[in-house]
Design a protein around this nucleic acid. Structure first.
Length: 546
RNA sequence: GCGCCCGUAGCUCAACUGGAUAGAGCAAUUGCCUUCUAAGCAAUAGGUUUCAGGUUCGAGUCCUGACGGGCGUACCA
């Protein structure tokens, strides 16, 4: 069903409900039944009214239908079914009009204006630059980017931001690791740091450095130039990986800037003014018990170093200060603990916590050689996203991370992803698109296109079924955007491809009567358009040939 | 102990936020390329939705309690 039809149905049902003396109108839900023999749309209002009206649902449904005033060009039949559903069937004229509107909207079909005028910031990836992005980061990266794309399609103005911290202990160890490899390279005495980074990329960076500048100090206190070089090289690598995955960040936000501009200090002071902060045992504590937590939380350690919560709070205030109406954070289930504290912090300081939302995804289990594979950047035990993309390309990579609900654990079988064959459901979608493109190329040769297509010739079940399916696209995009669940769109596109295949099977295009052929060509074009638009949202290519 | 997520076909997962007969893909069996792309299609088989209660016209979905798994619960990020 499409959104306009949805609105229309709700309107005429609401009008009919006027006949009952209701204190308040129930929420009118309309939906497309799973089983198309039940019609094209159905509502359950009659059942919901059974209790307040003290009548049986089927009787109420009949009264609602009797009072229904509908346009026969849109609705062809209305009937009661089952326990009290009211089922609507769309008129053919309506389908043809809507099909035409898909063709007219073209690459814009599926866009809605629900969030137009809204500024949204999606923060994701946000891996510290200690090494290349691994398959472990993939779900975050792809999910964040695709949610951003979905929101753009509902009208929002979206910025993508990468948050990082280049000042912590991790980064010091990184610098020292590079330094050690550098000294090793020059044949000098070196000591590899405790818990250092063992990856080959560290040697590469050291190698670079030794070519550029062989005068660096071997003094272990002088690790900073090594850290800087490493950060630069690793960020270049990360940016490159992101670009390969079709991800473009508007900004990189360095946690350090929150110290530099004093926001960290200001945040603590403001919380102290509200008496939400106190000193104990040399540390600074945040009274999270005021917000329902069992314990208070340390904001600044007795060493004087803040815990990550403090900059997190300051960072979110910074985002809201930049005028965003919605700040979305994307992170794995292991980071969930920080989120309530951030909300407590910002709302205590007068910010609207409704403007901060989070997309949480469950862990990815990497399966390699049939076994679960534990990755560690430090121990150089990982599969990078680049390696994966070298094998399967970015389309498959993106698709794999998107095809499951963020809410469930994702099993990523490297071998299966590499097996670029039938096991890869992404090809099913791309294949449907390529097949249509091929048909359209052939049709160019066969038909003159001198007259306008008469869409009302599309009367076959497979034709009407396909039209009804692709019409749901805008509704599906909006639903996936609001739920922040890209996999819904994938499921839908599978339905589209499958409906098209049915049509392809039942209805030939080339070789039939020209008028009918022209109408079917339009339907094929509209289908390709929906597939293309959907794949665009997913950041996946829609090939003309396969 | 407490909190969050999860438990659905042999395997990996859906089920449009409470709807009608729980669906796909792999794997299995059987058929289909002299006609628009067989990376495909058609068909068969596969289920007490972990278990036990409850809420209501109606529960895979909500509530309670078991059982099983993952992640948190740090002066680590």
């Amino acid at each position: 069903m499409n959104l306009r039809m949805n609105d229309y149905l709700q309107q005429i049902i609401a009008d009919s409900l006027q006949q009952f003396d209701l204190e308040e109108l129930p929420e009118i839900q309309t939906e497309a039944p799973k089983d198309s023999s039940h019609g094209d749309a159905s509502t359950n209002v009659a059942m919901m009214l059974a209790k307040p009206l003290r009548n049986n649902p089927r009787a109420i449904a009949q009264q609602i239908i009797d009072g229904l005033n509908f346009d026969e060009k849109k609705i062809s039949s209305v009937e009661i079914a089952g326990p009290g559903f009211i089922n609507f069937r769309f008129a053919e004229d309506y389908l043809y009009d809507e099909l035409q509107s898909i063709l007219d909207a073209g690459s814009g079909f599926g866009r809605t204006d629900e969030h137009s005028g809204k500024k949204v910031l999606v923060e994701f990836v946000s891996a510290n630059p200690t090494g290349p992005l691994t398959v472990g980061h993939g779900r975050n990266a792809v999910l964040g980017d695709t949610v951003a794309r979905l929101l753009e399609w509902t009208g929002a103005e979206v910025d993508r931001e990468y948050y990082f911290n280049d000042a912590g202990r991790q980064m010091r160890v990184l610098g020292q690791s590079v330094q050690a490899r550098y000294l090793e390279k020059l044949g000098k005495a070196f000591e590899f740091p405790e818990g250092g980074y063992e990856g080959e990329y560290i040697r590469d960076i050291a190698e670079e450095l030794s070519k550029e500048n062989a005068e660096l100090s071997g003094n272990t206190e002088d690790w900073k130039p090594f850290k800087e070089k490493a950060e630069e090289a690793i960020f270049a690598d990360i940016s490159n990986t992101l670009q390969r995955m079709n991800i473009n960040m508007e900004s990189f936000f360095n946690e350090h800037s929150l110290y530099a501009d004093g926001s960290i200090d200001t945040t603590v002071e403001k919380l102290r003014e509200k008496e939400l902060v106190y000193d104990k045992d040399g540390a600074v504590w945040f009274k999270t018990t005021e917000f329902g937590k069992e314990q208070d939380t340390v904001l600044i350690k007795s060493t004087g170093e803040p815990t990550y919560r403090l900059p997190d709070i300051a960072y979110h205030m910074n985002k809201l200060d930049r005028g965003y109406d919605l700040c979305l954070d994307v992170f794995g289930a292991d980071h969930i603990a920080t989120y309530p504290d951030v909300l407590s912090g910002i709302s205590a300081l007068g910010y609207d916590k409704e403007k901060v939302d989070v997309v949480i995804y469950q862990f990815v289990t990497i399966v390699k050689d049939g076994q679960p594979f534990k990755m560690s950047t430090r121990k150089a035990n990982f599969v990078t996203l680049d390696e994966l993309m070298d094998e399967v390309g970015s389309d498959v990579t993106r698709f794999f991370f998107l095809m499951r609900s963020p809410n469930t654990h994702l099993e990523f079988d490297i071998a299966q992803a590499k097996e670029a064959g039938d096991k890869n459901p992404v090809f099913y979608l791309q294949y449907a698109h390529a097949r249509i493109a091929s048909i359209l190329r052939k049709a160019e040769e066969e038909y003159s296109f001198s007259k306008e297509a008469d869409l009302s010739l599309l009367k076959h079940d497979s034709e009407e079924g396909l039209i009804k399916t692709i019409l749901r696209f805008p509704e599906m995009v909006a639903g996936a955007a609001n739920a922040r669940e890209p996999h819904r769109l994938i499921n839908f596109l599978n339905d589209v491809a499958s409906a098209f295949t049915g049509f392809y099977h039942d209805c030939r295009i080339i070789g039939v009567d020209e008028d009918l052929a022209l109408a079917r060509i339009e339907l094929a074009k509209a289908t390709a358009q929906v597939l293309r638009n959907g794949l665009t949202i997913l950041g996946i290519s829609a090939p003309e040939n396969m």
